[in-house]
């Protein structure tokens, strides 16, 4: 089983998927889906289309020159089958994948960290400059809560006792 790479978006083509086009000079173009085939027919450059891997690598969105990518490379020389080699390769594949994922995450965090700094800066500026938009909330007086007719209640003098006030309402 051979897994090919899409000529346009560089994703993996599994057996039974995609379209293969052979040009006049016997160059073989493989596409993972009709979307990539259509873009090729429209003569679009994958380096200028944002969702392709070529674009992402070119603009520093993905890692390109990492040693983990050296393992996943097309080799035209066929390897002689060796049981030990096959076993160690299978073990190494998992390890390489782990390392690749970890490095990708690290790159992602690195890319996000610059954005986080900018976001904090903007928040701080907003807080300093636009504080007048935030209305201060005063604590509600206790009397107001007990009596539903709160507006009348507020007119009562503060010095008067609780019993006097109750008598006046009755």
């Amino acid at each position: 089983m051979r897994l090919e790479k899409c000529w346009f978006c560089s994703s993996t083509i599994y057996p039974g998927h995609g379209i293969c086009f052979v040009r006049n000079d016997s160059k073989v173009f493989r596409f993972c889906r009709s979307k990539c085939h259509k873009n090729f027919k429209m003569k679009r450059n994958p380096r200028k289309v944002k969702w392709t891997r070529a674009y992402r690598v070119l603009h520093g969105k993905d890692a390109s020159s990492d040693s983990v990518f050296q393992f996943e490379r097309r080799r035209n020389r066929p390897e002689r089958y060796n049981r030990h080699t096959a076993q160690s390769t299978l073990r190494a594949m998992k390890r390489v994948e782990d390392v690749r994922v970890r490095r990708a995450e690290r790159l992602q965090l690195k890319r996000l960290s610059s954005k986080e700094h900018g976001r904090r800066h903007a928040d701080k500026y907003e807080l300093e400059q636009q504080l007048h938009l935030v209305r201060a909330v005063a604590p509600i007086p206790k009397e107001n809560v007990e009596n539903p007719r709160g507006s009348e209640q507020l007119k009562v003098a503060v010095s008067s006792s609780q019993q006097d006030r109750q008598a006046s309402y009755a």
Partner: peptide, 19 residues
């Protein structure tokens, strides 16, 4: 060997050529 018409293959993928 090669046909311009896109044709299905045994594995389910498709192939076409420019001549």
């Amino acid at each position: 060997c090669e046909t311009k018409k896109m044709g299905g293959r045994a594995d389910g993928s498709q192939m076409s050529c420019s001549r």
